[in-house]
């Protein structure tokens, strides 16, 4: 098993991508999960289903629609162009956005479960102790939902590291920009560089196993709820 410079750069890019996606999902997924756990709105079912779509759709389908939407003629692409950001496909930023959408359920579902497990009572208690809803969210709900945050972050990170289809559709295979480990393994195999494929694939296998082992040891319930 060997890793050359290109391999290491792909590993670094993958870690950057997964880190960025995890941070983005913490910011976006938390309010969605909170809303889903608290709302009595009729839209809850529909929103929950949309969030869960990436669990069942082939990555190529998601990638395809995102490619169209983010392209120069798509609504999202026109928006980013109007904002002077250019179009996102085949850029690192585009990859982050697409991966975040693809990993959304892996952040939202553990968080939603954690928020639902807390129940109304601790927040009512906080209100009777003068905490505003915003204060109670940070001082009570977030600390009590910590296992959900840990699971959501680890699962989102790991899922992004392991993704292939969406990356290929949105990002292509540009070194240092969009060529992540999973794509590079595909390249190695195509070029019959089995030794290098072994190096990266073995590292991915070990990484995934360690992540899941950590999760199942720390917080077995959160994982079961996702799958």
């Amino acid at each position: 098993m060997t890793m050359d410079n290109a391999d290491l750069r792909a590993v670094w890019l993958t870690l950057q991508l997964a880190g960025a996606v995890t941070v983005l999902l913490l910011l976006v997924g938390t309010p969605i999960a909170w809303w889903l756990s608290r709302t009595r709105s009729r839209a809850k079912g529909a929103v929950g289903a949309v969030v869960a779509l990436p669990l069942v759709l082939p990555p190529t389908v998601i990638g395809f629609y995102l490619l169209v939407a983010m392209g120069p003629k798509g609504p999202f692409g026109q928006l980013t162009e109007a904002l002077g950001l250019g179009v996102l496909p085949f850029t690192f930023a585009g990859l982050v956005v697409a991966s975040a959408i693809y990993s959304l359920p892996f952040m939202v579902q553990p968080l939603q479960n954690a928020f639902e497990t807390i129940g109304e009572r601790p927040l009512e208690v906080a209100a009777t102790l003068r905490a505003s809803p915003w204060d109670a969210f940070w001082s009570v709900a977030v600390p009590l939902a910590r296992p959900g945050f840990v699971s959501g972050a680890i699962l989102s990170f790991a899922h992004t590291v392991g993704e292939f289809g969406v990356v290929l559709m949105i990002g292509g295979n540009i070194p240092d920009k969009t060529r992540v480990v999973s794509v590079l393994i595909y390249d190695h195999v195509e070029a019959l560089e089995y030794m290098q494929a072994h190096g990266l694939a073995g590292a991915m296998l070990a990484f995934s196993f360690i992540v899941l082992l950590t999760l199942y040891t720390l917080n077995p319930r959160a994982v079961r709820n996702v799958s």
Binding site: E124, V125, A126, A127, T128, L129, R130, A131, S132, P133, D135, A136
Partner: peptide, 8 residues
Amino acid sequence: THRRALGY
């Protein structure tokens, strides 16, 4: 509730 001076 959080602006009421009560204990519960």
